[in-house]
Amino acid sequence: MESTDASEAAGTATAYEGPSGDALLAVHGVTTGYGSKSVVFDVSLHVQPGEVVGIIGHNGAGKTTTLRVIFGILQAQKGKIVYLDQDITNRSPRKNVQGGIALIPSEQFVFADMSVRDNLLLGALNERSSSVINERMAEVHELLPILKERSSQLAGTFSGGQQRLLSLGTALMSGPRLLLLDEPSLGIAPALVTSLFATIKRFALERGLSVLVLEQNIGQLLRIVDRVYVMRSGSFILEETAEQMKKRDQYWDLF
């Protein structure tokens, strides 16, 4: 990653250049887009085991597209994606879920016409062992008791914040090692965002879960992430640790 005019203009922080050799996820120079049109260019990033990494950027910067290509929903036109030392470039979402990658989209993140319990069971769609499913269900119920209390309630009748918790529970049911979160604060009351982010951080710490989270709410994001990538117009323009970024007086010049 090269330091650009944005980092220079943004302040005195030095771009982070940490290790990427033992990364759980490493994206090398990926270009992707829709049809023949590229919208993300030569993107590289890495996520260490147990690390929470954020990507921030303006609307249309290419954050979601980056997440979609990692998860296999979009095809990489160029570059390589390595997860657990395996090349997973253009691997199907189904195989990525089986491999321990879970995605929570920014919208439509629950099965609204199904019960909470059915949502959680769908999270474990690729797990065939009923004992493993029961174990995971018990674990999710322990972490998020509301999902046990309202097991038979239709997901669509939950509030936005509760639906977010359900989507987290659903993702955990697949037994992930890497969680991809697309704008988790979207559509949630500000008061709930703090507790939601605290829950995400707790999952990462307690379960050794790696998290790659896209977010526009920088203040909240910096409370839970270890590192941040800044994206503009389809490319990363800056990479900093959360501590480095917190020292900035303002963030608007990053967008």
Binding site: F71, I73, P93, R94, N96, V97, Q98, A102, L103, I104, P105, E107, Q108, F109, V110, F111, L122, G123, L125, N126, T170, A171, S174
Partner: peptide
């Protein structure tokens, strides 16, 4: 969207 996310 979610069906793809859960691996269907």
């Amino acid at each position: 969207t979610m069906s793809v996310a859960v691996g269907a």
